[in-house]
Computed example of a mutant assay.
Amino acid sequence: MLFGTIVGSLADKQGRRRACVTYCITYILSCITKHSPQYKILMVGRVLGGIATSLLFSAFESWLVAEHNKRGFEQQWLSLTFSKAIFLGNGLVAILAGLFGNVLVDSLSLGPVAPFDAAAIFLAIGMAIILSSWTENFGDPSENKDLLTQFRGAAVAIASDEKIALLGAIQSLFEGSMYTFVFLWTPALSPNDEEIPHGFIFATFMLASMLGSSLASRLMARSSPRVESYMQIVFVISSASLMLPIITNFLVAPSKVKGGSISFAGCLQLLGFCTFEACVGIFWPSIMKMRSQYIPEEARSTIMNFFRIPLNIFVCIVLYNVNAFPITVMFGMCSIFLLVASILQRRLMAISDKPSNIHSTKSNIYQMENWTAMKERDPEAEALND
């Protein structure tokens, strides 16, 4: 939340290609720290990992959108690219990476750090591809723009355009629920220490996500329904799917027997969790599509990293209090957040047909930059502002 937001926001001014290379270097260093048993070094690795994650979720998408528009490609191709990225990257490659990591650790007995070493090799390959074949693009390359001005401009953009603010709130609510689910699904399926096949279940989740992204590709290929329309339904379905642990807790008598295989209630919950993962598969390319439409190019990476601040705060609060509440309360909270996301999505749908505020947003950003520059030239400007 702290370091990643700052470094990720530099991509607009310093260059998105350079930020993607920085991601590769930062995560390679993070992987190397896993070889140390010292807490301080491992904590440095987590700081590096936090920086890399912010770059991963902003710089690559910003580079792609800018490059796509610069080359004059059809806007529809962008939707297909996002869908394929989720289907192949977040789905198929995730499954293959999990299997490959399992082979390194179990079959070849190379130890638990071996997958991180393998990741570092693939990151180095990716960095070589970026350096050899990508061109550089920027958000706003003006030289007189410091980081604080960038953040102010992003804040002005979010405050002045309701669509951007709604998009940020929707993203934070859904991703916050998603990351909470990541920590809760294991204890939910094995409340009595049942023997559950974690690897197989994870692969099933990834398969469901792939199916969701494939469905999203078909939906975005059509002119109707629009992304803003069908995402309302997706949020309602995802909310209902996370209500299953609460419903099964009331309808199915909990087992008191320790160990054994997954229970009947666990099977019902697993079905709901797979449905939620399918919604996740639909969410990613759809939110990317909406971000490409509503977020101004000049501050794309900065605004996207702004969105991640409330998300990270939310996840930190949840993890800190994860043992303070029953697991059903946590799932109920996530379900409510997803319902709120559906309501906000409905509002976004209602105002999306109105003329875009993107020009006024750019104007407000430029006004903020000009005012900052004027203060530097004229000390009395601050008094004038008061």
Rank of each mutant, 00 (worst) to 15 (best):
3 F>H: 07
16 R>C: 02
26 T>A: 09
40 K>E: 07
43 M>W: 05
44 V>T: 15
50 G>S: 07
51 I>N: 05
64 L>G: 06
64 L>S: 13
64 L>I: 06
79 S>W: 08
83 S>H: 08
83 S>T: 14
89 G>N: 15
97 A>I: 04
99 L>V: 07
100 F>H: 05
100 F>R: 03
100 F>M: 09
103 V>M: 08
111 G>V: 02
116 F>D: 05
116 F>P: 05
117 D>M: 08
117 D>A: 06
118 A>E: 07
119 A>M: 14
141 P>E: 04
144 N>A: 06
145 K>Q: 11
153 G>V: 15
156 V>P: 02
156 V>E: 11
159 A>Y: 14
164 I>D: 01
166 L>M: 03
173 L>D: 00
181 F>W: 11
183 F>S: 12
189 L>T: 10
198 H>P: 01
231 M>G: 00
239 S>M: 02
242 L>R: 03
258 K>V: 08
260 G>N: 13
260 G>H: 12
282 I>R: 02
291 R>I: 09
293 Q>T: 08
302 T>A: 12
315 V>C: 09
319 L>M: 12
319 L>K: 06
321 N>M: 15
322 V>P: 00
324 A>Y: 15
325 F>I: 13
333 M>N: 06
340 V>W: 01
343 I>F: 05
345 Q>Y: 02
347 R>M: 10
347 R>P: 03
353 D>C: 10
355 P>N: 12
356 S>W: 05
356 S>V: 15
375 K>D: 09
381 A>Q: 12
384 L>T: 10
385 N>V: 13
